[in-house]
C-alpha cells in the first residue's frame, strides 16, 4: 500500500466542493504562488511549526533541541537549516505551541481519516483531496480516492494541474469532480510569478474536458497579481473557447493566511484585503461579456 505525506485534515469543509466534505491536504507543490494560503504545504518534506500565539516562552523546547535549532529572544526562532523535525520540542512543549506539519500515512489511514465523517456527507457531500498539489503524490492520491469511492463517498480533487498527463489520467476513474485552479493566462507572468510554465496546465485542462470530466475552474483574485481585468478576461475567453459550458468560480482574496506567514517569520507579499462587492461585480461583468454562463458564486 502506498504511503503519502499529508499536513492537514479539515472536517466540515464547506468550501471545497458540494455539500459537507472532509478535505485532506497533501504536501508538496510544483508552484510557488507568493500568496499561497498553505505555505507549509509547498515543501514536500515535514516542517516544524511554531505557534507564537499560544507559546508560554518557557524555553523547554530550546533546552531539549538536539541540534540547537531553537532560540528564545522576543519569541522562539527556528533555524530551518538546523531543524531535523525530530519532534523533541513537540513532546517537551507544555502548551502545544510546537507541531510537525507533515505526517506520513498509508492510503488506508488517509481514507479512514476522510471517511470518519461519512455520516455528514449526505447526498452531495464527500471527500476532497487538496494541498500542496495533490498530483505531486498522484499514486497515493489515487489509492486514497479509490478506497473512499469503494466506501460509497463522493470524491473531489483540488489541483493546479501541473503534472504529467498520465497523473491526471490516473485520477479520472477515482475522482468524481475536479476543482481546477487557473491563475494566469499569460505564460511569462505565470513563469515569473509562480515559478513554472502554464502550458502543461492548459493541456491537462483540455485533456480533462476531452474526457468529459466534471470540472469546476477557479481563479483566486489576488490584488496586485491575478486580479486584473486583462488576466480574468483572458482566462474567461480561453475557458469559454475550450468548453462553452464551463463552470467558473472567482474566489475572493482572503487575507487570513497572513497569520501563517507571521508564524513562519516570513513576509506576506499581498497588500490589502478582500475585494469589495462592487469590485467582484466588475469581474463578474467580464465573465458575462466573455460568454461564461455558469458563474459559480458561494
Amino acid at each position: 500500500m502506498k504511503t503519502g505525506v499529508i499536513f492537514e485534515l479539515t472536517r466540515f469543509a464547506t468550501h471545497d466542493g458540494a455539500g459537507l466534505r472532509s478535505t485532506l491536504f497533501l504536501k508538496g507543490c510544483p508552484l510557488s504562488c507568493p500568496w499561497c494560503q498553505n505555505p507549509e504545504g509547498i515543501p514536500p518534506e515535514p516542517l516544524l511549526w511554531h505557534n507564537p500565539k499560544v507559546c508560554l516562552q518557557c524555553g523547554r523546547c530550546v533546552a531539549v533541541c538536539p541540534t540547537g535549532a531553537l532560540t528564545l529572544t522576543d519569541r522562539i526562532h527556528v533555524n530551518r537549516e538546523a531543524c531535523t523535525c525530530c519532534g523533541s520540542c513537540v513532546d517537551a512543549c507544555p502548551a502545544a505551541a510546537m507541531s510537525i506539519s507533515g505526517q506520513t500515512v498509508t492510503a488506508r489511514e488517509a481514507a479512514d481519516m476522510l471517511l470518519r465523517d461519512q455520516v455528514f456527507f449526505g447526498p452531495d457531500g464527500g471527500v476532497t483531496l487538496s494541498g500542496g498539489e495533490v498530483l505531486s503524490q498522484w499514486q497515493f492520491a489515487r489509492e486514497v480516492l479509490d478506497l473512499c469511492k469503494q466506501a460509497g463517498a463522493d470524491t473531489a480533487v483540488e489541483t493546479c494541474l501541473l503534472a504529467p498527463q498520465s497523473a491526471v489520467e490516473a485520477m479520472l476513474p477515482v475522482a468524481d469532480h475536479f476543482l481546477v485552479d487557473i491563475k494566469f493566462m499569460d505564460p511569462d507572468l505565470h513563469r515569473s510569478c509562480l515559478g513554472a510554465e502554464n502550458h502543461q496546465i492548459l493541456e491537462n485542462y483540455q485533456f480533462l474536458i476531452s474526457r468529459g470530466a466534471d470540472v469546476l475552474v477557479r481563479t483566486p483574485l489576488i490584488p496586485g497579481y491575478t486580479a486584473t481585468e486583462d488576466n480574468i478576461r483572458a482566462i474567461a475567453r480561453y475557458l469559454h473557447q475550450t468548453d462553452p459550458n464551463v463552470r467558473y468560480e472567482l474566489l475572493n482574496f482572503n487575507p487570513l493566511c497572513r497569520s501563517k506567514y507571521d508564524a513562519l517569520e516570513e513576509d506576506y507579499p499581498v497588500q490589502g484585503g478582500a475585494l469589495s462587492a462592487a469590485e467582484m461585480d466588475s469581474f463578474y461583468d467580464i465573465l458575462v461579456q466573455e460568454g461564461i454562463s455558469q458563474i459559480i458564486k458561494e
Binding site: 479539515t10 466540515f12 468550501h15 491536504f25 494560503q37 498553505n38 499560544v54 487570513l256 497569520s259
Partner: peptide
C-alpha cells in the same frame, strides 16, 4: 473561519 482551501482559527489570527 472557513474559507476555500483552509480553515483559520479566529484566535490565532493577527
Amino acid at each position: 473561519v472557513r474559507v476555500a482551501g483552509y480553515t483559520a482559527y479566529f484566535t490565532e489570527l493577527a
